[in-house]
Write a protein that binds this DNA or RNA. Structure first.
Lengths: 489, 489
DNA sequence: ACAGTTTCCCGTAAATGC
DNA sequence: TGCATTTACGGGAAACTG
């Protein structure tokens, strides 16, 4: 096996990697060369008993021959399998190879730089608070006016002409003017707060969330760990609190309105549309706040999320980023498999209520623990829409739905996991894992189940990126260099 | 380990085996000696990595210490396990040991002599046939009489006095006498046939069947193979055919009776009790003919019947020894687990119709193939009647019931397997197998589920007997000597 | 604490489907 | 016929349970 390793090492070292990573023709030459070499190796090795070697060579050949949709991620899987197997041997013998170190470093470092940015905003108190005192002031004002007005009304007709009363009437008129002014001011302030929240949500928050989701994808396939959701949760929660506060203020205004109104009163004109806007924002906020915090994963394969085996249990964790105490145990989440060609059901308790704490840092979340997928054979072989040919490239998705009822609002929530691959035997795990890598590397679409109907070609640079991740996820961040290819051959 | 082996070999060779096999005190000494030696061995071996050896030593110690109810069958299991493991090594290296050869030979040969007796009766045609022509004759006679009698009746009154007619009347009278005689004769013949069948059944047939069942028990625990049921089936079938024929004859007599009767007619007096007797015999015959031809067994453990693992499928074959073509596909057998402390249900199709042929030599039988036991946890821990302490000594039984409807008879049949042991993991198989050996060696009761509440002591002779069987069942009948004990230590 | 018992699930082999 | 996929189940380890 030495010849191939050397050949490969030399070839790799002599390349201009800046160019190669964008040059698919060069990648093609590499692959074709490898195919010939691998065939030779396989002939030579076939009488030996090294099953792992033969297995890996066969997989490599299949890959190079263009099976697996030409998905080069299989090579990453082969290599990481070998890494896992030989980790101890590696540690002990520290084989003398240094190819690819700079490549993997370049990619991993460049990616890390890109990924390790911090959330650059935070809110410390509800935005709605700033208008609270205005409303309070308005209420006091109106109450005083009310009292004094009623007092005057209750006087005898004869008394109404006294100078004192006249003066009082003037004062009341002035108060009414102030009140009108204040009403307009409060409404306008509320409008501004709403607008501010809207901006925050549509610009930074959504972007930040998408970013987190992308980082989750990368982390799932072995990339650098991504931060938690606590930052985002704080933000979501504060925004929700603000919106609810504004809603209460608007209700208060309605109450004030029923007690006192007048020509040119701004409340009946502006309040409805403000309320509608608040509700719309709340609705949006809640929809975005319902996320899959930990993607589905078999506990025995923590390094291989999104690959699920039939009749073997898996785990998945949902979280609501709006953490209001009154929602504790109120949100019953239900999960289901979106059926693709094959149809699956989930056995185990698939309805569960979200609750706080549960040993996590008090997040409002729920973890399904003992779900296990079970195939429902469709007696009528309705293989109508022919998807991908291999089951390990058939994408499914687990969807979650729930309903939030709070303060008279009823909001239906729905989200779903990243695509998962259903297998029936661990022997299919490597293939399935390659599919998962390819998907999450190529797209940030959270649910493109027909990805493999027409998959994008994966580039060599992507391959190397993943190799680096897989490598570091098995060997540890510190030991992220040394040759990787040598384990294949 | 050599010391023990030698010690044991010397000890065994120096004994008077004729005496030892009846002398339990001597057996006790042997066991106590062994215990000390085993403990020493275990101390010495404990740092080695020979897991099989340690495992066997531990089991042996437990056994000698009087766990397992003092059941020495565990040693047979240990040894046969080792045999299976080391069969190849044995064949290759042919270890130089010759202890115990004569012992195992003595027991196996003596048993074989006892078992290989032949069924010593056979029937070639229905017993009922011999009376068939009598009934036919009777019918013809009666018909002729009838015709001639009616002819006379139809004549004019004037003609009735002619001499010719008078003569005819006398002839008819004579015929009536013959008829009466024949009726009596037929009834008596039928009675004799019934008696003969009764004798055959209660003496030879039942005994022969019990014998077959006992031989089945022995064969299950590794003893010599026992013959099939074809001999018995022929006998049962012929007896059933005979009885049904007699029944038809009795019906014919009833028909003749309705057409003609007279003072002193024997039919109304004797027929009812004869019919009752026939029905009774048929009922008995059917009940005995419903047998478990192959006891429940996991296909992957053909050498260990009656040990069933939860959620692993097993096979069991039922047979009706009365093979009448009209019963093909008519007998729907249903199976169930008789619940003991733990409660089990059988998953899979547990109702199936008996049919002929099915690649067997045309027997009327049904094989349940994909049954699998599943424990039903009783939420209310009703462990009322405390049975044996270990699950591997808890006996269950699988019962089978069906209904035969034939020629207006309806007969409920029921039978059950020998006791089975339910395990949940293969690791329990050796213990369970020891229980099965002990049971079937000690009793021929087909269903004593409380056997282990107060099990009989097993004798050394029984142990040696079983050892011999286990030995030969793994090594083959030809190679039935050489030391066995040496594999334990 | 502990032993008996069950559950879990990988990995090989065999069966099945296509 | 061959390959893709599923089923079957032993065996080791972990979890459960009285």
């Amino acid at each position: 096996p030495m010849e191939i390793r050397h050949l490969l090492a030399q070839w790799i070292e002599s390349q201009d990697w800046e160019a190669a990573s964008n040059n698919e023709a060069m990648a093609t030459i590499l692959l074709q060369n490898l195919l010939i070499q691998v065939d030779e190796q396989l002939d030579r090795v076939s009488q030996e008993k090294n099953l792992l070697l033969i297995h890996n060579l066969k997989r490599t050949r299949k890959l190079l021959q263009g099976k697996y949709h030409g998905n080069p991620m299989h090579i990453a899987v082969i290599i990481s399998n070998c890494l896992r197997e030989e980790r101890r041997i590696l540690a002990a013998a520290s084989m003398p190879v240094q190819v690819m170190s700079h490549i993997s470093l370049i990619y991993s470092i460049s990616f890390l730089c890109h990924c390790e940015h911090q959330s650059n905003f935070s809110l410390s108190s509800p935005l709605g608070k700033m208008t609270d005192q205005d409303v309070k002031y308005l209420e006091d004002l109106q109450e005083e006016f009310d009292f004094r007005y009623k007092t005057i009304q209750s006087l005898e007709q004869s008394d109404k002409n006294s100078a004192l009363i006249k003066q009082e009437m003037l004062a009341l008129q002035a108060m009414l003017n102030t009140l009108d002014y204040k009403r307009k001011e409060v409404l306008s302030k509320i409008g501004r707060v709403i607008h501010e929240i809207d901006m925050l949500m549509s610009n930074m928050l959504t972007e930040e969330l998408l970013d987190w989701k992308r980082r989750q994808q990368i982390a799932c396939i072995g990339g650098p760990l991504h931060g938690g959701l606590d930052q985002l949760q704080n933000c979501f929660t504060l925004l929700a609190e603000s919106l609810f506060q504004v809603r209460r203020q608007l209700e208060k205004l309605d109450e004030l309105l029923t007690r006192l109104t007048y020509d040119g009163d701004p409340i009946p004109v502006q309040r409805p549309q403000l309320l509608e806007k608040v509700n719309f924002l709340l609705y949006n906020l809640f929809r975005n706040s319902f996320v899959v915090e930990r993607q589905p994963c078999m506990p025995t394969h923590p390094q291989r999320p999104m690959v699920l085996k039939t009749l073997i249990q898996f785990t998945v964790k949902l979280r609501l980023l709006i953490k209001l105490p009154e929602l504790n145990y109120q949100i019953r989440v239900k999960c289901n498999v979106l059926h693709s060609n094959r149809r699956f059901v989930l056995c185990g308790t698939h309805v569960k209520a979200m609750n706080m704490d549960e040993s996590a840092n008090g997040s409002l979340s729920v973890e399904f623990r003992h779900l296990q997928p079970k195939e429902m054979k469709s007696s009528a072989g309705s293989k109508g829409n022919e998807g991908p040919h291999m089951v390990t490239e058939e994408l499914h998705s687990i969807s979650f739905e729930t309903q939030v009822c709070l303060y008279g609002l009823t909001i239906n929530l729905e989200t779903s996991s990243l695509p998962v691959v259903m297998i029936s035997n661990v022997s299919q795990l490597p293939n399935a894992w390659a599919s998962i890598i390819w998907y999450n590397l190529s797209t940030n679409d959270p649910q493109n189940l027909s990805f493999f109907n027409n998959p994008p070609a994966a580039t060599l640079s992507q391959l190397l990126e993943v190799l680096s991740w897989q490598f570091s996820s098995y060997v540890g961040r510190g030991l992220n260099s040394d040759n990787v290819f040598c384990f294949v051959f």
